[in-house]
């Protein structure tokens, strides 16, 4: 999410979304191929759907085609699961879930098991659209951006007050080290 300061206390943020039309998906998995290639290091040096941050959950005989993007890492499985039936088609539990979680092998690096997360192909220079969208000629994936106006959040000040207190107690360096560590983990 990119934030731009605007005049006064109001500011806008850019919300990036991918509109997924499961009816248009033809199950070709080009999105997986290009995602894995884009995120390879060096870029495009390899391809491997297992490393993709988008996967098409598909079961052709039951006409199930759900492109799902990798979301946040979850340390634990959900306590309860839900099942959706849409237009008479029963979807597997977790079918719409974006989490990289212990319940399934989705969105994990195949060798290390480290979680994968969609970053909307953030790069410099930035792309017009994420690569999966560019490669989806079926238009099952459509990229949308919108500006949302948000009131500048008051909590910002609270955080400052809190941090100051922490710095007084532990010293600035220690707080900074801790923050750096946390940032890396995230």
């Amino acid at each position: 999410m990119e934030e731009h300061a605007v005049s006064g206390h109001k500011k806008t943020k850019t919300v990036k979304t991918i509109r997924i039309d499961v009816d248009k998906c033809n199950g070709c998995r080009a999105c997986e191929v290009i995602c894995s290639a884009f995120h390879a290091s060096p870029r495009y040096s390899s391809s491997n759907s297992a490393r993709s941050r988008i996967r098409v959950i598909h079961d052709p005989l039951r006409d199930i085609y759900v492109p799902v993007y990798a979301g946040d890492y979850s340390m634990a499985e959900c306590a309860g699961r839900d099942k959706y039936t849409i237009d008479g088609k029963e979807y597997d539990e977790c079918a719409f879930c974006r989490a990289s979680c212990p319940s399934r092998d989705l969105f994990k690096e195949p060798d290390s098991g480290l979680p994968l997360k969609c970053d909307m192909c953030e790069s410099d220079p930035s792309l017009s659209e994420p690569m999966c969208v560019q490669w989806c000629l079926a238009d099952a994936l459509v990229y949308e951006e919108r500006e949302e106006e948000v009131v500048e959040e008051e909590q910002q000040e609270e955080i400052e007050i809190g941090l100051e207190a922490m710095a007084n107690k532990h010293g600035v360096q220690k707080v900074m080290d801790t923050l750096a560590r946390m940032t890396k983990k995230a």
């Binding site: 390879a40 495009y44 040096s45 390899s46 391809s47 491997n48």
Partner: peptide, 15 residues
């Protein structure tokens, strides 16, 4: 079932 990489010799040109 496979989860290994397939490598590209000259990525930019190929893409």
């Amino acid at each position: 079932r496979g989860t290994k990489d397939v490598h590209i010799a000259k990525p930019a040109e190929f893409m």
